[in-house]
């Protein structure tokens, strides 16, 4: 197997109490398959609550998946080997304020993965490794003894990234790592992600809802809607020739920095609300808001098929 990560039919349901002694599964992620190559960035986009974060966490086994398999370099990730797998797969969190323990110094935060996996022989080596990591993400050595609350959002996110890099992972899930930052800082952090990829060859699953950011950093982009993956393609291909109607409408909402072209652009406005994931529509999940919906869409779930050049789409009509 050449892929770094293969996700097959991943399902993540959460039991929700809907009445006395009655639970309904909330299908946060329903039957998703994708793969990530070595050193590649896969962007994952979709609106709030569509299950992007859940995909990232289920892949890392922070949630126990309801069904489906995740292979890392060909080996299936199970409960028993997850601890060693954590040295290969790490995560960067969305909120740089709550993802760092306020009672720990930067040195201890970055050093924690090293402690957990016993990756040093003496305290001098530990300190050296930590200082190297801090330099890698652009922090000064004098920051090591400080607490997280003494830093700005961008610096905190750098600490979080250094923590993820501490174990030399091959794969990092970036869960909206820039959406809590200022726009000017976003650019810095994103460029840093790219530089680190060039230097260390890590692969990213880059979760975001800013399409321009995702296009900038990703090799391929996957679009999710209500726990399903609706389209997956190379980023330029997806941006220029979207097939799925949901992707079309998403792309039409991206602001264009040129007023002349923007004036002639046609905005596709979706009607209605996102259905509740507790009460999913039959067949295609998007059919309730789709302009092209036919009778077939209500009856069966469209397959996720290759339309050539690795452009996968789940739609009956298009």
């Amino acid at each position: 197997m050449t892929n770094l990560l293969d996700v097959e039919h991943l399902k993540q349901y959460f039991p929700i109490r809907t009445g006395f002694a009655k639970t309904t599964p909330l299908k946060a992620v329903d039957d998703i398959s994708f793969s990530i190559r070595h050193g590649e960035t896969l962007g994952l986009v979709g609106e709030s609550g569509c299950g992007k974060t859940t995909v990232g966490r289920s892949v890392l086994r922070l949630y126990e998946p309801t069904d489906g398999k995740v292979y890392f370099e060909g080996t299936e990730i199970t409960r028993s080997n997850i601890k060693s797998m954590r040295r290969q797969m790490q995560m960067v969190f969305q909120d740089p304020y709550s993802s760092l323990n306020p009672r720990m110094t930067v040195e201890d935060i970055i050093g924690e993965p090293l402690d957990v996996h016993r990756m040093y022989s003496n305290s001098k080596e530990r300190r050296e490794k930590i200082l190297n990591l801090m330099e890698l993400v652009g922090l000064n050595a004098e920051h090591a003894t400080r607490y997280a609350h003494e830093f700005s959002g961008g610096q905190r996110q750098r600490i979080g990234i250094a923590r993820a890099l501490a174990v030399n992972p091959k794969f990092i899930v970036c869960d909206e790592p820039v959406s809590a930052l200022d726009v000017s800082i976003q650019a810095q952090v994103i460029n840093m992600f790219e530089e680190l990829q060039d230097k260390l060859g890590v692969a990213y699953l880059f979760i975001a809802h800013d399409l321009l950011v995702v296009r900038h950093i990703s090799n391929r982009i996957a679009v999710m809607y209500l726990g399903h993956m609706v389209e997956l393609a190379d980023s330029d291909e997806l941006m220029d020739h979207p097939i799925h109607p949901y992707t079309e409408s998403l792309l039409s909402a991206v602001p264009i920095p040129d007023p002349e072209t923007a004036r002639h652009k046609q905005r596709i406005v979706l009607e209605g609300d996102v259905p509740s994931p507790l009460n999913m529509p039959t067949g295609c999940p998007f059919r309730t808001r789709c302009r092209y919906a036919t009778a077939k869409c209500a009856e069966e779930m469209p397959d996720f098929t290759d339309r050539g050049n690795g452009h996968f789409v789940a739609c009956h009509v298009k």
């Binding site: 922070l62 997850i82 969190f93 924690e112 957990v116």
Partner: peptide, 22 residues
């Protein structure tokens, strides 16, 4: 429920360490 506890889990820290350190 804080993210830093989740972060510790994703690092691979055990329950004892999470309770003690976080």
């Amino acid at each position: 429920e804080n993210d830093y506890v989740l972060a510790a889990k994703s690092i691979g820290a055990g329950s004892a360490r999470i309770i003690r350190k976080h």
